[in-house]
Design a protein around this nucleic acid. Structure first.
Lengths: 334, 334
DNA sequence: ATTATTTATGCAAGCGGTTGCACGTAAACC
DNA sequence: GGTTTACGTGCAACCGCTTGCATAAATAAT
């Protein structure tokens, strides 16, 4: 059997409570008894039993991570592992345990969250949602359970979130194109309902305005799914429309791959293209794609920080954190 | 406060023990009381508290996963996330929770394992070690703690492991080359101390022998680190040596990338090259690389299966499982 | 010296389940 | 009809730790 607090108490000649107090050094214990207890702990090789400790009321110091498993897109894979690693870096530093589960769909996602909460295992949850999942958020809010979401919530409900500074990131991209003499910049993005699309589009518009360029709605595209073919189609639409354009920015590398394909097929030269998310493929293709690295590690790390801070200080107000991204210049903008 | 077994007992008009027994339906309880209890459970929305249950002696049904975090290369491929997903698929089906931690180095790895065990949280461990880590294995064996390792142990110590059928996989690769008329096949692999290298090399030799081709030691390379530059160097060595060769097999895509570079630089044509691990880059480069998909999902899934089976049946003997891989033919072998 | 105040430590009641053993009742036996 | 057997259920101890409250000793105040 493992060494328990009881053996330590006997060895040190004190009561169980004293040992427990030494362990949490919360009460004023004489240096002398503290020493005795610590020696006993060392001598017996005692390690506290977290389960018992949790049952008795201490927080579990465990965070549950829920990962959607419904998307095969590659970038998400590196995104997830990096985010998970980021979370682990902060959590481990703070002595927290990490649990994870992959969910096939929204419904399962809620079920897992429920299980995490009801079982008593975890004291906080990180939602690694690439997109909206109001079911989860509502469930967590209804249960008043601490959580943080990576990605911004659609409306600014008062919850904890961590996201990129999408406005600035896209602004930087557009600045780059303008500095290269581009003026007619097309925009291909996801659904306009997504906060991320709105922010990136706003960043795009801001730079146009700053440079006294009138935005042309004929160059703006919002699609409901992320895929190469959507990028291809949008680009073809522009070409057929006859609207003048000299460059394309997108909110996801996938769109850009499609755009590049369309440009090549239609023989259009000197059109600069940029992407978003720095997917693995972006550096291997020819020409290599200028894109934005979103720093998933940092997103994860800050998500963990935010959550743990709120776990340890219950009356902190929910807040959001913006993480900077890096523009990676490659061949499609030269 | 959450609903406890006590409220259920009162609601159903039975004792705590009866409710507990219904929950585990291990003793003979009348259908009628069983019904009453189940109704009460449903009515009150009762969910068992795993923490209490674990304290009272039930297994935690939680598996700890330890991931080495010391190599950035490892994060370029999707091995880990896929293995983790594979593990989750089986574990979740069986109602197990999953914990993970990234470790910076061997030492930290052992520390995390120790923490997992001593805290009482986990009842089994999956080692996601790309290579040997005897410290961990020894620690786990010394403590007689259930675990499984993904990758084969160096010697066949009696432990649970899951690995690819590296012998057959490499044999298939070499068969392919021979079927294309190749005879002088170079081999570039990792350290010969690694079981994985030994197995793949053995598979390679077996096919040569079967085809009455005499292996030439001048075409065999074993390097201690996995990197593009090692692959480059080995290939250059062959070229300088003047030994005739018409193809190269490697035990990792990274070597192959280096080899391709060397071949291109030196203007050698018609040399077929194959890799291993199906890294993302392998399909994007030009020419695309013929390689072997090792099916990380399946490795993970089977690791979880093996571990859970042993957890639930203590007197099972340790065993190993071989997972098939798939040869992916691409342009470097056409 | 006596009483009031502080302080370090111990006591014991939980936290929410599990389970060996005891017990009462009903069925089975002679 | 009385005794044995089997079976379903309850009692209570326990898992290892936490913590409010009580207590005894030490210190300060009068």
């Amino acid at each position: 059997m493992r060494v328990t607090i009881k053996e330590v108490a006997i060895e040190a000649g004190v009561s169980l409570s004293t040992v427990s107090r030494v362990l949490h050094n919360n009460s004023k214990i004489t240096e002398e008894t503290k020493d005795r207890v610590n020696k006993a702990i060392k001598k017996l090789g005692y390690h506290p039993n977290f389960i018992a400790s949790s049952l008795a009321g201490k927080p579990t110091k465990t965070i549950g991570i829920v990962i959607p498993n419904d998307s095969d897109e590659l970038f998400k894979n590196t995104f997830f592992i990096n985010a998970m690693r980021g979370i682990s870096i902060y959590a481990q530093k703070k002595g927290y345990f990490l649990m994870y589960s992959f969910s096939k769909n929204d419904e399962e996602e809620v079920r897992f969250i429920e299980k995490y909460i009801r079982s008593g295992w975890v004291s906080g949850i990180v939602l690694l949602n690439a997109y909206e999942n109001d079911k989860c958020i509502n469930y967590l809010k209804d249960n008043d359970f601490p959580f943080v979401i990576i990605g911004s919530p659609s409306e600014s409900k008062d919850i904890n979130w961590v996201d990129n500074n999408n406005y600035d990131a896209m602004a930087e991209v557009v600045e780059l194109l303008i500095s290269k003499g581009k003026k007619n910049i097309a925009f291909i993005g996801g659904s306009k309902n997504l906060r991320v699309t709105k922010d990136r589009f706003a960043g795009y518009l801001s730079v146009l305005e700053k440079n006294k360029i009138t935005p042309q709605s004929g160059l703006h595209f919002f699609r409901n799914s992320f895929s190469e073919s959507e990028g291809y189609n949008c680009t073809m639409e522009i070409i057929y429309s006859g609207i003048e354009f000299d460059s394309i920015v997108t909110t996801d590398d996938l769109y850009s791959y499609g755009a590049l394909k369309a440009l090549e097929e239609s023989g259009r030269k000197n059109i600069m293209v940029t992407g978003f998310n720095n997917t693995p493929k972006s550096s291997y293709i020819n020409p290599s794609l200028t894109t934005v690295e979103i720093n998933a590690d940092e997103l994860g790390e800050n998500a963990a920080r935010l959550l743990i801070e709120h776990l340890e200080n219950k009356n902190l107000k929910p807040s959001g954190v913006l993480i900077n991204s890096n523009l990676i210049e490659r061949e499609t903008t030269t």
